[in-house]
Structures are given as C-alpha cells and as structure tokens.
C-alpha cells in the first residue's frame, strides 16, 4: 500500500481551559493521496476545524504523528494554502493586489506573480475586476477572489474551511461547480471542511465523517459517483443513498 501525501496517525488535540482539559480531537488516523478531494463532515464541535488547523501547521497536535510527503509536518509551509469561510480580503488592496499578496509575502518573482494573478482572475471569472476594491464586490465574487488568492503561490494542498458556508444556496452551488472545474484542471489535493452533507458528496472522492464525542473520526465514506460531475449527478439514486448513509452515521435520522 502506497503511503499518502498526508498521513495522520492517532492525532489528538487537547486544549487547556479554565474548566479543565477540553478534548477537541481524539485518536484520528487517516491518509490523503495526492490529487484527492477529501471532505471533513460533521456538526459543530466535532473537531473538523481543529484538524484543518493542524493540517495547515497553524496548530500542533498534542499526541500522534502527522507526515506530509513522508516528513514530519509541524508548521506552516509554502506547499499548503488556506481558505476560510470569510473571504479575508484586505479592503485597502485592489482585487489584483489581494491575489498578489501570497507572492509578496513569500518573496516570489513579482512579474511572474502579476501574470499569474491575471490568469487566475480570468480562471475564476473575474476578468476585468482587477482594479476594483473588495468593498465593491458581492459576497460570491469575494470568495472567487479568495479562491484565486488561494491558488496564487501554486500550493500542492488546498485546505478549505467552509469556504462557501456564508454564501446563499445558489451562489454556493455555482461555486461548487467552479471549484470542481478548477480542481480537475489543476490536480490539487483538497481537504474541504463543510457541514453540508450534499455538498460533501457532490465534491469529494472520500468523506471523513466526524462526530463530537469527542472529536472522533466516525468513518470514511468512499464516493463512487462518476467524474466529471455536473449538477445532474444529484438525480443519481446513488447520490441520495450516500447522503442518507452519512446522515445515518452522524445520527441525524431518528
């Protein structure tokens, strides 16, 4: 069995709080292959955001081993990009300058980054919006800019923390299709946090189902729907079956 790009074994995270230790993650083990689309699904407090933070190197696990490309992974790295529920665009920078930010921070070649920013804005459908400021854009457009910024320094792994969770249903579904199109084109490895089961099934190769008792990986669901996926895939009985399987694992149906 080949070892994955990311490998976690028995990852636990305990926070010290005023009322005693709080277990956010307990004994989570998994592998993520290169180019895979993984979703972390579960209710609030199941530790999915904590796990993402650890994967991003923003926090360290209390126990367990985390490997990235077979090397110990315990800090932020260039190969990893993060995106959040809010777009986190800097309002004093134009759209283009926001997309160029990772390159500036990482000290990459300015000319090449400027071209890259132009290409990425084109790819997320924001051609001609480079000189606008974030305040002039709609919520959906801002997440598109955030998506372009995520890809700007060409990270291998994309960690996305409910990136479309604050968008309305229509915009969110449009963004899902957009994300799949970009993922298919770039072959990135994606770890995508969501509490929307349908979204997870629509997007993912595999779904890590997490439960809050406390922060456990309840199971991993293989999504065997064909690719490339379009909206019609939701008519597929297999789609509903998977959604209901996961609902069952989470104990949503009683």
């Amino acid at each position: 069995m080949p070892t994955g790009l990311i490998e976690g074994s028995s990852l636990s995270k305990v926070y010290a709080t005023a009322t005693g230790p709080l277990v956010a993650l307990s004994e989570v083990s998994f592998q993520v292959e290169e180019g895979e689309f993984i979703s972390l699904v579960g209710p609030s407090g199941c530790g999915k955001s904590t796990l993402l933070s650890i994967l991003g190197g923003l926090e360290n696990q209390t126990e367990g081993v985390l490997l990235l490309s077979d090397k110990e992974h315990d800090g932020p790295r260039r190969e990893i990009g993060m995106m959040f529920q809010t777009s986190v665009l800097f309002p004093w920078r134009t759209v283009r300058q926001n997309v160029e930010l990772p390159g500036i921070i990482l000290g990459l070649d300015r000319r090449q980054q400027a071209e890259e920013a132009e290409r990425l804005l084109d790819m997320v459908g924001l051609n001609g919006f480079g000189d606008r400021y974030p305040a002039e854009l709609s919520g959906g457009m801002r997440q598109r800019v955030a998506l372009a910024r995520l890809l700007a320094h060409d990270p291998k792994v994309l960690l996305m923390d409910e990136p479309f969770g604050a968008l309305d249903e229509f915009t969110r579904e449009t963004m899902n299709l957009e994300l799949l199109r970009i993922w298919e084109k770039t072959g990135k490895t994606v770890v995508f946090v969501t509490h929307n089961i349908g979204e997870a099934v629509f997007l993912s190769d595999r779904i890590f189902v997490m439960t809050p008792r406390p922060g456990r990986l309840e199971g991993i669901v293989e999504v065997d729907l064909p690719r490339p996926r379009k909206a019609e895939i939701m008519r597929d009985p297999r789609y509903s079956e998977l959604v209901f399987d996961i609902r069952g694992m989470l104990g949503v149906d009683h």
Binding site: S53, G56, G57, L58, P76, R77, R78, I80, G81, M82, F84, Q85, T86, V88, F90, L101, P102, I105, L106, H153, L159
Partner: peptide, 14 residues
C-alpha cells in the same frame, strides 16, 4: 484583527 486574517498570514509563513 479578524482572526482568520492572522491565520492566513501565518499559513503564508509571514
């Protein structure tokens, strides 16, 4: 500051 903005900068190794 937006805590996510700090996370973003951190993730970019700033």
């Amino acid at each position: 500051v937006d805590p996510n903005a700090i996370k973003l900068m951190k993730s970019l190794t700033a």
